[in-house]
Write a protein that binds this DNA or RNA. Structure first.
Lengths: 237, 237
DNA sequence: GCCGGGTGTATGGTCAGACCATATTTGGTC
DNA sequence: GACCAAATATGGTCTGACCATACACCCGGC
């Protein structure tokens, strides 16, 4: 409001007020989400309306919404109707994937750290799945069959991801599942290279069957060990 | 280029071209990072220059940069000189913290899931620290002393975070450390409430000392158990 | 009364051009 | 050489416009 043409006012806030306009918008929106108890599916006011309410330009509102979209909490639809506008969503996976992929691209995270983190999560999930009864057994078995039928490394990796995601999902923890998916998606190309390097997938499939059997038999220790062996084979350190 | 006033052209790309302009910018920047081998500290071209190079408006460039800033990979500085402009950084912690905090606000992640994830990471880190020799012992001890001296719950929690961060950092894995920090920051308020609820911090401090001792003695199993007991006390389920 | 199509309109997406605040660089002055 | 003022480059913001999209509404035909 005090930029651009006019600005007859001397200064709006002579002291403090270090936050940029779009950050103010960000805070206000977050505030409103908490105060009004908004949740997934609820709509935010339109960009023009928000701009007027918060007394900032539409550009600043858009930058704030862009940040929220990047974090996976809003999704914008054009057009009209109940589904149009900025709708609250929750896609931590997408956001996490982007975050990991870009930080890997900057070489600030090493592949070893990513694989180690994956090992941590999968061992934890495998132990839980073995103890809590394998709700994911069916899906895991289907993924193994699909990997047998896969014609290309890309296809194999796609079903491999499904297998490990089923295992992670069995933990019942959406946060670890989201991290797991982000890790897998971020290193998908690396996984394809690993399959090509190994030459054949018999060993990997044997590992998968061993993991599946351990979870089915409720043997947590065996499941954990099988996961460790599997990752050591796929990503030798 | 084809919006706004003019647009004498019928249509630039009648088929395909579903991506929004700022996404195109996003891809190009990521591409350039990979192609030119850019890394932390390197500068991106200015917003105006990028806009001209990519043939889009400065607004679109700004939205793309805002997204990258949200993911923690660029940081913008105003002014002039070698440090001004969009500089590549790497702050996965900040981005992760925002991501978790906002998704918690939307109630799509439960506190239990966050605490369970934290337990997973801390047990893993404690085991590693105990085995690999405790490089973090000094910092952990200092944090315990600082917690003894803390006058307010806020202060106590701040040093508590330092304690647990030191433990996580001992794993040598920056990714798990970043996740750990994000988890702690995202639930900071909740932690303060927990301290207030417990009334006194003697039990928590006893746990901290027990964890420290186990790491010092190289007893991984004891360290893991101590972490589990500590979190169970702080966040009863 | 019901249905189909045309029009209205609200929405996000984009563009262009301007001005502001900030911080360095540059050049002049003592 | 030291110091100060002007030039300049940068991100940050604002304004106002137009475009493409997709639902909402109304109106005529049946």
């Amino acid at each position: 409001m005090n930029g651009g043409d006019g600005s007859r006012e001397p200064r709006r806030a002579p002291a403090g007020a270090r936050t940029r306009a779009f950050e103010e918008v960000l805070d206000r929106i977050e505030e409103r989400i908490a105060a009004d108890g908004l949740t997934v599916g609820d709509r935010l006011p339109g960009e023009r309306q928000l701009a007027e309410q918060l007394q900032v330009s539409r550009s600043s509102v858009r930058e704030a919404l862009r940040a929220l979209a990047t974090l996976g909490v809003v999704s914008s639809q054009v057009g009209r109707g109940p589904d149009a506008g900025a709708v609250l969503t929750s896609r931590p996976d997408t956001a996490l994937t982007d975050l990991l992929r870009l930080n890997l691209g900057l070489s600030t995270l090493s592949m070893r750290e990513v694989v180690d983190t994956r090992l941590m999560i999968e061992q934890w999930a495998a132990g839980r799945a073995a103890r809590d009864g394998g709700a994911a057994l069916g899906e895991m078995a289907r993924a193994v069959d699909a990997m047998d039928a896969a014609a290309t490394p890309e296809e194999f990796v796609a079903h491999d991801i499904a297998f490990h995601m089923a295992l992670a999902a069995a933990s019942g923890n959406r946060l670890t599942s989201a991290i797991m998916r982000a890790l897998r998606d971020a290193v998908r190309r690396y996984a394809i290279d690993a399959v090509l390097r190994l030459g054949d997938t018999a060993g990997l499939q044997a590992d998968h069957r061993r993991i599946h059997a351990a979870v089915r038999d409720g043997d947590a220790d065996a499941a954990i060990a099988a996961v460790a062996d599997h990752l050591a084979r796929a990503y030798p350190g």
